[in-house]
């Protein structure tokens, strides 16, 4: 640890922490965008038109398997140059759209799996009881589809938080960008970058633990096999 300087650390710390507000608000903005666009993907995916679904699956595959960094650059540098529809976007909006749409393809899959996991009998029952389509969704399907996906969605919030520093490459002044600026001015990257790493760890590790706890709780609630098993065991104990 020959080169570690504590006074640099304490000098850089308040400067870097200033960017935390932007980083966190960007995380939530991107996440909200992903949740909304993910819903749109799921909605289109459930339409009856086969060619549309086919195109959609390729579009999603394309977005998912190309780097978010390139997508950010495309939105920031190339979008203003596109004829007719191109507009100049500020870095924050760019990051929200780029990262939001990228992760929406993953979030869409989460929604889809949640809906697919609702048992067939529930669909049939809602039909048999003559539920209208909106009522079927709001009263029967969604209340059962959404809760099991909450831990997965929470995981994606943490993943999003860790992807947000990518936005520093197009000039969003989050903690990483502030650390880079400090490093460029003082020729010391060690302490500011370590501060950034510590901030990420301190924020994401407890949230990951929280999500894990939530997941265990949800598993206990929704794992029907386990519930059945425990029921049988308790019956066995009685007799």
């Amino acid at each position: 640890m020959s080169n570690w300087q504590w006074d640099t650390f304490f000098e850089a710390f308040p400067l870097v922490v200033e960017g935390l507000g932007i980083t966190i608000s960007l995380t939530f903005a991107c996440y909200l965008c992903a949740l909304i666009v993910g819903f749109i993907w799921t909605f289109i995916g459930r339409m009856k038109m086969k060619p549309l679904r086919w195109v959609l699956s390729w579009v999603m595959e394309f977005i998912r398997s190309t780097p978010p960094l390139v997508q950010l650059f495309f939105l920031y540098f190339a979008w203003p140059m596109v004829p007719y529809v191109g507009v100049t976007l500020d870095p924050f909006t760019c990051a929200v759209l780029g990262l939001g749409v990228h992760y929406s393809t993953y979030i869409g899959e989460v929604y889809r799996s949640g809906i697919d996991n609702v048992e067939k009998g529930q669909w049939e029952a809602s039909k048999a009881l003559n539920f209208s389509t909106p009522k079927k969704w709001t009263k029967i399907i969604l209340p059962q589809a959404i809760p099991p996906t909450i831990p997965m969605l929470g995981n994606y919030l943490i993943i999003m938080f860790k992807e947000v520093p990518l936005a520093s490459t197009i000039g969003v002044v989050g903690i990483l960008q502030l650390a880079n600026n400090y490093g460029a001015q003082n020729f010391r990257y060690l302490e500011p970058l370590t501060i950034v790493a510590i901030l990420f760890l301190v924020l994401s590790y407890p949230s990951a633990l929280l999500i894990k706890k939530l997941e265990n709780k949800m598993n206990r609630r929704f794992d029907k096999k386990e519930a059945l098993h425990s029921m049988k065991e308790s019956k066995g104990a009685v007799s």
Partner: peptide, 11 residues
Amino acid sequence: RGTSLIVQLFW
């Protein structure tokens, strides 16, 4: 797992 890849890369 707790820090992001870009931070690790720069670090």
